[in-house]
């Protein structure tokens, strides 16, 4: 008697987001099943990886992760080019200089930096403000306008500042990151609010706010899993691809900073620190995240190998 293999039949799928413009566009999402279950549905795109660039030399990055960028850390354009050499699919540009506690840079200054970076590299950009909601709602519109029509990914749109960011994305043809603090109900509501401004549901990426391995990873993981299940069951307001800011979290962890003589049992620092970033991303890829913001070039290399293996079809 023939064995009938039970496969889950999903009614819907994750929306596919296009970042950038052809021929250099990056596509993320579009999955019609749970992560990497090729035998149940289509997984059209490999998870994409961005390497970070700050528009000011970072002061709180551990040496392990500044070393590969020696000589370019105070030059965002050179840094971005370096990231492309290192194999990044996208550049995540952090406009930290806009922070009133840093240089309080204006929208025009930020736009200039973003423009210079965009012109220097072929890959699309993820353009992030300084994290001060009020300030970001000033600078991101200026940046979005300067890069009009280039279809980058802008962030972070929160419950408090989404209106200006979503309007910029609409008028100037970009995508937007909807960010909510580890709360699936708020994530859904924010997507609704943004789409009510008439930005397409396929122009939004969800940032659920992630924590690194050992620092609350499992909370973000379960939100990703739940929203992916919602997407597959037809919930259009949770069907957006998920972005994970792994780099900033993983390199804050004690395990990425503590030298070997402090904790001999933890093993060699550099290897351990990179592994911390890689393992965090691997877990979130299994949770359903399809876009990763990373810091170390070696992490990109290792994850690319890993994701490419996961993309080999296991259809039967």
């Amino acid at each position: 008697m023939a064995v009938n293999i039970a496969k889950e039949k999903w009614t819907s799928k994750v929306s596919e987001m296009v970042i950038g413009t052809e021929p250099n566009a990056v596509k993320v999402g579009g999955e019609a099943t749970l992560p990497f279950l090729h035998f149940e549905g289509e997984i059209p795109n490999r998870p994409a990886m961005a390497l970070e660039v700050n528009d000011m030399e970072p002061t709180d990055w551990p040496e392990t992760v500044t070393k590969p960028f020696k000589g370019v850390l105070s030059d965002p354009v050179a840094w971005a080019k370096k990231n492309v050499e290192y194999g990044a699919d996208l550049i995540a540009l952090n406009l930290v200089s806009a922070d009133p506690e840093n240089k309080d840079a204006s929208g025009e200054e930020c736009a200039e930096t973003a423009k210079a970076v965009a012109e220097a590299v072929d890959v699309p950009l993820i353009i992030l403000g300084c994290g001060v909601e009020e300030k970001d709602s000033e600078i991101i519109p200026a940046v979005g306008e300067a890069l009009s029509g280039q279809n980058h990914l802008l962030g972070l749109a929160t419950e408090n500042n989404y209106k200006r960011l979503a309007a910029t994305a609409m008028v100037h043809g970009h995508n937007v990151i909807a960010s909510s603090p580890l709360d699936i109900n708020l994530a859904k509501q924010l997507n609704i609010l943004i789409t009510e401004m008439n930005l397409g549901a396929d122009k939004i990426a969800i940032d659920p706010l992630v924590g690194a391995l050992g620092y609350g990873l499992e909370y973000a993981y379960s939100i990703m899993e739940r929203s992916r299940l919602g997407a597959l069951m037809g919930d259009k307001m949770l069907s957006q691809p998920i972005i994970s800011f792994v780099g900033p979290e993983a390199w804050k962890a004690k395990e990425s900073k503590s030298p070997i003589d402090e904790n001999p049992a933890w093993g060699e620092l550099e290897k351990r620190a990179i592994l911390w970033e890689v393992s965090t991303a691997v877990a979130f890829a299994q949770g359903g995240s399809s876009l990763f913001v990373l810091r170390h070039p070696e992490s990109v290399k290792q994850l690319k190998t890993h994701f490419e293996k996961l993309m080999v079809s296991n259809k039967y």
Binding site: I184, N185, L186, K188, Q189, I192, R226, S227, G230, G234, D235, K236, M237, L238
Partner: peptide, 15 residues
Amino acid sequence: EDIYCDSFVKTYIQS
């Protein structure tokens, strides 16, 4: 069956 959000009535009607 549906994930809660503040606009749950509206999303049900539109779905």
